[in-house]
Amino acid sequence: MRPFTYTSATTKEQALQAFHPNAHYLGGGTNLVDLMKEDVERPDQLININNLSYSKITAGANGGLTLGAMARNAETANHRDVRTNYPLLSMAMLSAATAQIRNMASNGGNLLQRTRCPYFFETSMPCNKREPGSGCGAKNGMNAVHAIFGYSDKCVAVHPSDMCVALAAIGATVEVQQPGGSSRLIDFNDFHRLPGDQPEKDTTLQPGELITAIHLAPPSFADHYYYLKIRERSSYAFALVSVAAGLQINNGTITKAGLAMGCVAHKPWKLIKAEAYLAGKQPTQANFDAAADLEMNDAKPLQENKYKVEMGRNAIVRALTQAFDRKA
């Protein structure tokens, strides 16, 4: 690891002030420190933000819930209000990593975790995300775990988070503090970005901005929800494809659907067409099939990830079916 200095901030002002372009905020460190050991991230300063007062989970506006950015993933997933009103989020978060990592990982850090693309991790290989302009090794290389939607010539990586897939389905806003002292709100769907010409940018966060909270939309899917994660082993593996499905059902009709896929694009992939299609329809196999097809017809698989199309389609249908079958 390269030498770096370490500062521990106790107020947001201290943290924001300490920031400079080569510094990094340190959450649980489960992603950042790994990448430093791999020589991928090379900060010259770490600013510990774990002692800031953003680690609570509190009631939000309109019956929503506010998750502190420094609250731990484990604590969040197991929080009573999350389990009761946002069981989809809880289920997704508990499918991630291991108990030990979830105990360390912070909510803010989870949003900002970086791709698992192997080229990104190996400094001897080209990767535009790690080293802009060096080329994308994966585009014509080993891309079995890469994107089928929304990629560019510059980058075909996927966002690996499970939590974020559920957030995309549920709806949320990210609150950030800006270096100047003001704060702003970012709609969750605008938080992560597609790679385009700047794959080095995962999100729309500006340098130095500090995430303080995630505000969840009022709960709609406490009764009918499912997080399906398809992976190579039963635990401790990132998804090949995942689907977060929430349904609001009134008198046998779907009044609202929240749907997103993970590990298929550079950002959590909200299934906007399928959501719109299902609203007002009956929860039937035929409608689930049609909703899935509507989305998957747009998929453009790469050389090695053609399997993701059928897997993704089946996963959408299965997640919807499980969500519907789940008795409140």
């Binding site: 192997p118 190996e122 290389g141 080993m142 190579e232 082993r233």
Partner: peptide, 23 residues
């Protein structure tokens, strides 16, 4: 193995998957 570079792209236990208890 990466076909052009010849390195192992499975670089750690995060990507070299051995069974877990649940399996």
């Amino acid at each position: 193995i990466e076909p052009n570079f010849g390195n192992f792209i499975t670089r750690s236990f995060a990507d070299y998957h051995v069974p877990v208890n649940l399996d």
